[in-house]
Design a protein around this nucleic acid. Sequence first.
DNA 1: GTCTATAACACGATAGAC
DNA 2: GTCTATCGTGTTATAGAC
Lengths: 237, 237
Amino acid sequence: MPGRGEHTRQLIIDSALRLFRERGYAQTTMRAVASEAGVSVGNAYYYFDSKEHLVQEFYDRLQAEHRTAAEPVLRQESDFGPRLHGVLTAWLDVARPYHAFAAKFFKVAAEPDSPLSPFSAASSAPRDAAVGLLREVLEGSTAKVDADLRAELPELLWLVELGVVLYWVHDSSPEQARTRLLIDRAVPLVNRLVGLSRLRVLRSVSRDIVSLSRALRGGTAEALGRAEGSADPDRRR
Amino acid sequence: MPGRGEHTRQLIIDSALRLFRERGYAQTTMRAVASEAGVSVGNAYYYFDSKEHLVQEFYDRLQAEHRTAAEPVLRQESDFGPRLHGVLTAWLDVARPYHAFAAKFFKVAAEPDSPLSPFSAASSAPRDAAVGLLREVLEGSTAKVDADLRAELPELLWLVELGVVLYWVHDSSPEQARTRLLIDRAVPLVNRLVGLSRLRVLRSVSRDIVSLSRALRGGTAEALGRAEGSADPDRRR
DNA sequence: GTCTATAACACGATAGAC
DNA sequence: GTCTATCGTGTTATAGAC
């Protein structure tokens, strides 16, 4: 059963995301969100614990759109480099309309305890989806990679993607052209490194990277096991 | 001339930093800061444009402490790896008392337009100091590096340091032991890569990295030239 | 369980008098 | 430079209606 309140919930989300896009995050008041949705403030808080929780929905939608946009590339390309390039620029295309908005609420996602943090338990679904997409980039390609490294590579590529997003958020160039340039430069580098990973001289480097990656994930796993991220600004409220 | 209000300014900063450490960032109200300093709220805002600006001072102090703590390592070590390791762990030692505090206001630093962003114009002094410290790590070492890469390396090392800080902020392990592990793993890798950078097979990789680094700095330079970072949450106020 | 209406609270920030 | 008073906001509380 779709639930009676599901409609109300959608109304609130829709008006929130629209207002966020039109006027920015900070300038959108909860009163305005409620009023636009035709509900009371109290009702909005009945469905969403805080203003920040309204943004979680945005993540999910963006991730879904990214997958759709990446689909053609995954179907048509078989070289690792172009696949990665296509998927990263697909993200750029999908995210472009939200650039100004994203820059504003980005700080919310940066807080370690926030459920919006990409490392939080609450974000595990979109994170797994993103890593999965990058795994497809690799597995569907003809690239030959050292076996140990192959297992870690999707997570490492996700870190690359995070770096791109971080740069993108700070990128004030028109149409975020600089981020495109960054991708154009970074992808061949990654591609070359992956290709060289089986060279004898680089075996030790490769092992170092695998070990580093596992150390990193250790932290992520621990973060996942941690108390449910519940925004708490210190723990005042 | 030390300025008449300099005393008041210091009073405010001192009480702010003490309260931040004792009760956290969010839980410290501007009213409390002003009251502790024995001034009015309005007066506190006369000296500091916003609560966030109070944290800038913390940056400067931390950076100064880091340099002091790194001094012995820079004097005694000559190998690149140990020098880098020593400087990074020195940061960890210096920053440890502020871990809880840092995790809380970290989001403030993450906002692109915030003066507290490590990429902002307002942060250029601490940033240059940090890059300079890493340049000393390299220049004072016996490491032999490709000339083009050598020029870019301090900035790249600064990115590594940023990554470590990012991890540290999210690190909830006791005494941030995981971050230490991360450094133990990452430094040998960086060291090895730097050492291999002159190998013939890696020339193209090396060139890719230099080119990537320049693309990155292009963005930073642009950010530097941008309108003075003035916090503005959207531009409401 | 879903929802309204309205008031109240605490906080960051500002206005304007002195 | 300093103050007091006040505003706008996120969030909570209350008291109920369907």
